[in-house]
Design a protein around this nucleic acid. Structure first.
Lengths: 241, 241
DNA sequence: GGGGAGAGATGCCGC
DNA sequence: GCGGCATTTCTCCCC
């Protein structure tokens, strides 16, 4: 066991310090909990956050290879192993070489502000349902039912309730199943068959479209609010900064 | 603009170096692409991986606050800004203070080995369907249909096909919708109504259970292969290492 | 805390 | 590449 004891002691001293720890190390990882995993030795980035969330990243790829959130952890007394535990879950990181160990106290009180979600698309349709079909009048949005919540509900002026399910990217089989669940539930609770269903999305898979028409539902091409164009415009007007 | 120029130059020198870069900085982030986000200044961990995947982490929490995978990036010539681009997506990180900048060449050829997934659960049931219901005989597993793929298909000895949908964690409304899609599709393609549906999971939500029984389907309590117990056992027999 | 559904989902596999 | 779907999903919102 090579193990740089100096850095292991440093790491041990950081237990419960509430610091952000960045560890670059050759390590092996074992996880057991909801599932179980083994990862043989390799060079990795280990992040221990100030809330004791642990992330283990390989040198490539988007997602952490192992992780554990808001856990308790400690360095083993005898072996170069970091043990982490959270409820019934366990994570063991065996450290073969430590290339770098740094700790920080970081302050970040800001929350991210994200726009351009499906909710924005429902709001757009609720505000102006005629972009979906002439004659539609808004009734409700985000209405809760026992079978889930309905993005937008309208009337069509021909004595029908119209249930709209939005997808900001693409509609698929599960989208159609979801719409069907709502339509049937509303038909049941209102005791009427005058309930129509519409999927609004920029695209739909062919199988989903087949299922949609089998059920007498309708697809309507709707693009979500396009923030990218706004961004492009502002970039242009600002030049290259 | 405070900006430690020395570190900005170091960062610039790392463009296209193929190194893993760990940057601890006070920064603001702007993203535009599939959606759009703004994040005001705060202390964060910025990771640039060897495949030019960028992750930005707050000092707490599990998920990255912003990210971009396999992008191209560069440091602005005039401002302390890291520009990243991937297709039609943009990410700008404005660096107000750099607390730490380190780069590494990391080597990791290992792949994670994960067990205890839903697939393991279907395999278990396919190998021994009588744990679900006496008399069941396996027919197929992971069978592809136009309406999705069916986890396990069996016969029940009473001239019925039995379609089993497994969930490793919990079954919900969409699970029941999924099962229903398969049952109806098989009924249609076989031209018979002798098709039953069973959801196998360790738990099911109350609304899903109601919908399940409305459709004449059945819930069967099945726990996924319990690897945790195995882990506990091995830990015990090894003592404290 | 449970239930339901979206996500800048991501990642995997199959056709 | 698209399609379908699981994920140690995670996260948010609502009841």
């Amino acid at each position: 066991m090579v193990g740089k004891l100096k850095e292991l002691n440093e790491l041990k001293a950081l237990e419960n310090s509430g610091k952000t720890i960045i560890l670059i190390a050759n390590c092996a990882v074992r996880y057991s909990g909801r599932a179980e995993s083994i990862l043989a030795a390799g060079d990795r980035i280990v992040i221990i956050k100030q809330d004791n969330t642990i992330l283990i990243h390989k040198p490539t790829g988007n997602s952490p290879v192992n992780y554990m959130k808001e856990c308790s952890w400690q360095v083993d007394g005898n072996k170069p192993v970091l043990h982490a535990k959270s409820g019934k879950e366990f994570l063991d990181i065996t450290l073969y070489k430590i290339y770098s160990l740094k700790s920080f106290v970081l302050e970040d009180n800001q929350k991210i502000n994200l726009v351009g979600t499906e909710r924005d698309m429902s709001d757009m349709i609720y505000a102006n349902p005629e972009i979906v079909e002439p004659g539609l009048k808004p009734v409700s949005t985000e209405e809760q039912t026992q079978y889930g919540f309905i993005d937008v509900m309208c009337t069509d002026g021909k004595n029908n309730l119209v249930i709209i399910e939005c997808k900001r990217y693409g509609a698929d089989l599960s989208t159609v199943s979801q719409l069907r669940r709502y339509v049937e539930k509303v038909q049941e609770s209102k005791g009427t068959t005058n309930v129509r269903g519409i999927v609004c999305a920029p695209k739909i898979t062919s199988n989903a479209e087949a299922m949609l028409s089998n059920w007498g539902f309708k697809f309507c091409f709707v693009r979500p609010p396009n923030y990218l164009e706004e961004y492009d415009k502002s970039q242009m007007s600002l030049g290259n900064y």
